[in-house]
Design a protein around this nucleic acid. Sequence first.
DNA 1: GCTCCGAATGTTAGCGCTAACAATGGTCTG
DNA 2: CAGACCATTGTTAGCGCTAACATTCGGAGC
Lengths: 341, 341
Amino acid sequence: MAEQQERMPVMADVARLAGVSHQTVSRVLNDHPNVRAETRERVLAAIGELGYRRNSSARALVTRRTGVIGVVAFATTHYGPARTLTGIEHAARAAGYFVSVVTLNEVTRSEVREAMEHLARQAVEGYVVIAPKRAVIEAMPEWAGGAPVVAVEGGEAPDLPVVCVDQRGGAHQATRHLLDLGHRTVAHIAGPRDWLEAEERVAGWRRALEEAGAPAAEPRYGDWRPRSGYEIGRAMAAEGALPSAVFVANDQMALGVLRALAERGLRVPEDVGVVGFDDVPEAEFYSPPLTTVAQDFTEVGERAIRVLVDLLGGGGAAGPPAREVVHAHMVVRSSCGAVRR
Amino acid sequence: MAEQQERMPVMADVARLAGVSHQTVSRVLNDHPNVRAETRERVLAAIGELGYRRNSSARALVTRRTGVIGVVAFATTHYGPARTLTGIEHAARAAGYFVSVVTLNEVTRSEVREAMEHLARQAVEGYVVIAPKRAVIEAMPEWAGGAPVVAVEGGEAPDLPVVCVDQRGGAHQATRHLLDLGHRTVAHIAGPRDWLEAEERVAGWRRALEEAGAPAAEPRYGDWRPRSGYEIGRAMAAEGALPSAVFVANDQMALGVLRALAERGLRVPEDVGVVGFDDVPEAEFYSPPLTTVAQDFTEVGERAIRVLVDLLGGGGAAGPPAREVVHAHMVVRSSCGAVRR
DNA sequence: GCTCCGAATGTTAGCGCTAACAATGGTCTG
DNA sequence: CAGACCATTGTTAGCGCTAACATTCGGAGC
């Protein structure tokens, strides 16, 4: 491959070698009809011989399509977002798109705005934004400058297509499961207040308690990280504010809670039943193995791309924005014990 | 912003509004000297008024630079790779580059090759590849088609710039720490055989044992996942092959080991001392809190971009390929106990 | 045989931008 | 004050590709 360094071959070089016009080469590359089979072969052979690769910039310039999808991601070191991102990337690639990623340090209006502007400079055709805070969701269409946007975990965004997990249903199931085990009520350690996912989980928990006529203490709010679960768990135990069951808004915080309980000599599930949310791969090996709610993050990513690609292809003037809800299901392990009557 | 839908403004529109030639607009945008301050102001004002944004494809076509760095990532649901990816993205963006990502399902030659080809279609200027297997590292320069490649966690790649963590040193520290606590020897649960990082950690462990004149049993090989740690831990305990201390090649497997020991009624650290590797955020809250080796993944990502950007800018014909080694340091918690004499 | 048609191919004209060169006008120097 | 020089701006020519139109040619229809 010594000639590669000299000058990349262009379409005209292929055309010359194949004895056709450059337009015919273009037709072959774009699968146009009306190219004789024998001509196509010749062109393909020339392409192979020269190691020709079409110049994407020139193509994008004239077609006005870059084939790039911009992804604004957040908290990618966490299992859920990371899986979602992977799902997005795979689906996008399968659909023939490139994926350009920006990861946020925090979800603030200015960071999201900056991220989308960065992507706009690259002329992305559309956006997938994983930014589960209300303040951000609302401002996104404006920043997109006319390009389609799909919000992942966007709650009930007013006029934005959304793909999300049924957080509320999952939280409801988890709480219900604990109530069914005979617990009089269930405490809740929630995610941060301004997070849509946290709000939804609170709502699902509250509804399950209401349906059962169980008293609902005010939830405690953590920050998703294990430490916050640990500290809240410790505080609750110290205050004697610990009921016999706790629904924790994610597995990481649940791990912190387990640790706090262990330090105080409380046994799980005998003294306190604990349920988490997310089903991270580690959850099965916590002490004790954690009952939790599993989400199909890959599915979320794939659906997000499906919605976006539809929007990109079909023009998108078809009724109200899509809203895809992915089901969540419980995974029962030993942290909530057996049924007590 | 109603006019956006009609037709995106181009440089000529800005020029007309500002009363200059399009070339002057281009000069302003590219920070050329020799533009009168007052003219620059007028152009900037026109840009603002029209909401003009330069067409990246046209620019790329003529400059022959897309400003895109291709990243081949793997195992992004794990803490380390995810952090590295984030570091790469941030550093690239700060350096004015876009980041296009492909995530691999598995690290095989064909997958890596396909990923790099996908990125080549987008005309990336260079690659950062997180693909810590020897078979893959070797073939990468060929696939890059002349574009610079930086390998992350690439061990000692023959003629490829590499950025990696001092795995061997970290493993050595961990093993040494256990020996210093008075353990006669230290068992090792390693990562998969074909992973460079796993090999390095084995090497560091082995060297520490040799230096201390301690007997080294053959390591057991896991797959990085908690389950494999769990199963190996169980097997070792059942066989009575468990010494008083174990160095586990990552925190996830260590979690599995802790679980296996707990199930058998063995106490950590009293009966068995355990040390992990990675310092995932959860490690502090395992039962017991895990002593482990912390790696600065963000630093790795940043350095990888620094090396690549140097290569992209400076031509790169400056001596042997770069080799950046990031330090690893121990984080002592309670899983290995206090010094016993 | 002549027209007409459609398949196959070629020719031309940009897409929006930057690089290279050209032109202008003012300042400095001797 | 001529000539040189420099800062500033304009003009022109592509980058490599696709879309639109033009051309060629063989066969069908009358």
